[in-house]
């Protein structure tokens, strides 16, 4: 693994031929040996195959390492409570059943414990409000900053950029103090997070990069700013909307600090807080807890696997422009 780590030569390899050109180690090796010591083609083949095998072994080991906790959770969710914690035996699929899943539903079926469906509903409603509302108002603001001329624009935009720096943690306590009368509501979990300085920034930079000509043509045809935004800019900006949607979704679905501060009523408890409460209450039925975990992450995983390319692109977008 370490032998190949420092080898960016694959880019040359990949541009040179579209066929799978093997590992970078191979390319580097040929480069080093030069013309006079090229060696037989058979030796090269062996070397190439060895390097490729090493790559795959490293990848499999690494992949397993990353997948292990997830695998452990899934297998554990299907096992009797007493057998989840069986050391490495926890990975051995034995005595599998869906009992834990029915148990979780049964365990959360009163107003005192909260309902499992209620946790899902809370998380889903809160996240939907933040994502959809955020897409609408932040993209509108982004358009105003990127494309329109108005008094006070640059100053306002500078102020918005300054807010990007402010982490939520720095304002959590005063926000808690401010909104203490609205504890235990859906609204207090969602509304403060709809407007988002970073989303505005992402939209603004994206809109600025769009070609102006189409918009200008629309304006000549008499379209006002609202029409330009809705009919021209929004349809051209699917990547920006997808990026902001995914990033907002990931943050909001995992949101934990704010519910810890704001939510004590089980009827409006979001999923992350719910699993945190669940795992802290004896008796510890690990099978049930793992089943809860699987249920909680399954919808996200499905969406992730379906739109993986978009997820990756969104995350990459946070970095390049930073």
């Amino acid at each position: 693994m370490t032998a190949h780590r420092a080898s960016p030569a694959h880019r040359t390899a990949s541009t040179a031929s579209t066929a799978s050109t093997g590992s970078a180690a191979f390319t580097a090796a040929t480069a080093r040996s030069g013309f006079h010591r090229r060696g037989s083609s058979r030796r090269r083949m062996v070397r190439r195959r060895a390097a490729k095998t090493a790559d795959y072994v490293a990848m499999t080991l690494g992949g397993l390492l990353f997948a292990a906790p997830i695998l452990y959770m899934i297998i554990g969710s299907l096992k009797p409570d007493g057998e989840v914690l069986g050391g490495l035996g926890g990975f051995v699929p034995r005595n599998l059943s869906l009992g834990n899943y029915t148990d979780v539903f049964r365990r959360f079926d009163s107003d005192a414990t909260g309902h499992l469906t209620g946790f899902f509903a809370t998380s889903l409603i809160v996240t939907t409000i933040v994502v959809v509302g955020g897409l609408i108002i932040n993209s509108m603001a982004g358009y105003a900053f990127a494309r329109m001329r108005w008094r006070g624009r640059d100053l306002t935009y500078a102020a918005v950029l300054a807010l990007v720096v402010l982490p939520f943690e720095a304002i959590a306590v005063p926000l808690f103090y401010m909104l203490n009368d609205y504890r235990d509501t859906i609204g207090v979990q969602a509304v403060p997070f709809v407007a988002n300085a970073f989303s505005i920034y992402l939209f603004t930079t994206f809109f600025r990069g769009l070609p102006k000509e189409i918009e200008e043509a629309a304006r000549i045809d008499g379209a006002g700013p609202w029409r330009c935004y809705l009919r021209v800019v929004v349809p051209m900006s699917k990547p920006a909307f997808a990026t902001v949607a995914i990033l907002t979704f990931l943050t909001q679905w995992s949101s934990f600090l704010w519910p810890v501060l704001m939510v004590s009523d089980p009827s409006v408890r979001p999923l992350p807080l719910a699993i945190s409460v669940f795992q802290g209450q004896p008796p510890f039925q690990w099978g049930d807890i793992m089943a809860f975990g699987v249920l909680m992450v399954a919808p996200v995983l499905v969406v992730f696997l379906a739109f993986q390319r978009w997820f990756v692109r969104s995350v990459a977008a946070t970095g390049i422009k930073g």
């Binding site: 992949g63 997948a67 997830i70 990931l250 699993i275 995983l301 995350v315």
Partner: peptide, 21 residues
């Protein structure tokens, strides 16, 4: 996919699974 998958896991859930580990 494997390397990136943990990113979509809420930290609360990650902590619970690792508590068992």
């Amino acid at each position: 996919t494997f390397v990136f998958m943990p990113v979509v896991f809420p930290m609360a859930l990650v902590a619970v699974v690792w508590r068992l580990i």
